[in-house]
Amino acid sequence: MSIDIEARVLIAGEASGTALVLDDTLSFWGGFNPGNGEIIDVHHPQYQQFVGGRILCIAESRGSAGTPGGIAETLRNGSGPLAFVLGERDVNIGIGTLVANRLYDLEIPVLEVSTAIMKQLHSGDRLEINRQGIISITNRS
């Protein structure tokens, strides 16, 4: 079964892929290795998982001013996500993605959804995102 939801477009773009839903916020400086896309925060529920090639669903980033750099670097070297779906308006993830899109001619979208919608997303779901911010969700079951 597939459903369509409308998200707020922070950075426009198209993407399709499999969701990786993080159960906690994450600092992309210190908690994340931008060299290979691995979550290295030992306290994080998704510790040692890789974000590469997934659509990363996360409430928001945390902490350091270094998050945009971590995002831009992982996107630059190809170890980053295909898109971001956020639960909050997160300037750090948005700006890191914008800079990578401009410098490396990428089209990584960043969308914002409500907390209620966020709860309906599960790791393994198939997501398709268009430039207007419509997300088509196909549950893995």
Partner: peptide, 14 residues
């Protein structure tokens, strides 16, 4: 300015 703190090649490209 914090962007002078190295965190990979992207910082330098920017």
């Amino acid at each position: 300015i914090d962007a002078c703190f190295y965190n990979g090649r992207a910082h330098l490209d920017f």
